[in-house]
Amino acid sequence: MRCLLEIKEVSKSFKKDKRKVKVLNDVSFSVKKREFVSVVGPSGCGKSTLLSLIAGFDEYDEGNIYFKGEKVIAPSPERVMVFQDFNQLFPWKTVIENVLFPLNVNKKETTLNERKDLAKKYLKMVKLEGYEDYYPNEISGGMKQRTAIARALIMKPEILLMDEPFGSLDAQTRMQLQTTLIELLEEIETTIVFVTHDIEEAVVLSDRIIALGKSSNSIKDVMVNNLDRPRDRLSNKFIEKVKKVYDKIKE
């Protein structure tokens, strides 16, 4: 079977002070449909760059990225990104208007009421019932990220790209959002590529963990994570797994 997403020998460098700095070096992996893959690594290992290449925001220098067998050359609503930045919501729109935005601008063949019902359904899924008419500056960071997830999911993307979406949240809120995301996985049929520097987060969420190294800017290891769900963060197996991933990454 062909994979949903295939990354083949991708390299990317940026120019800095007339010098080429390599951020990704010969990276290859693939993601199957409905799989949850996390990419972990220290700051500067190129994990966010990798995600932005998959989204089609940036061009890669070498190699190929295939999505459903076709080369990725531009952004598409089939590959939706959720960012870390709380600013990703439009401040001039309420929570529900933000979620409605992708539907409204694409004007699919539905009435506004149908679209509103759909938006409410997704807001309920991310546990934001009752906050529909708040503006982003009136809600907390965690709620903003929930809204952003609802806005991304309403497009029914084939693949959801998440770039450290919980990275700016406090520990407790972060765990709450992780729990919500795990619950969502049962309701939606989306493939997820999740970038994080938090190893515990990767272990609690994903089916497979890709470790990127900073010095090499390439893949150090790909680890299958088949711990039973729901995962208990305090179980020995869980802690062992976290340790194993940590050992791979540290340099």
């Binding site: 989204a55 089609g56 925001f57 531009a74 952004p75 598409s76 609503p77 590959r79 939706v80 990104m81 960012f83 930045d85 600013n87 990703q88 439009f90 935005f101 992708p102 601008v105 694409n106 497009m155």
Partner: peptide
């Protein structure tokens, strides 16, 4: 305007 806004616009097919 944050670059992220333009990226979101392109992402949603605008």
């Amino acid at each position: 305007i944050p670059n992220i806004y333009k990226q979101i616009g392109k992402n949603y097919g605008l």
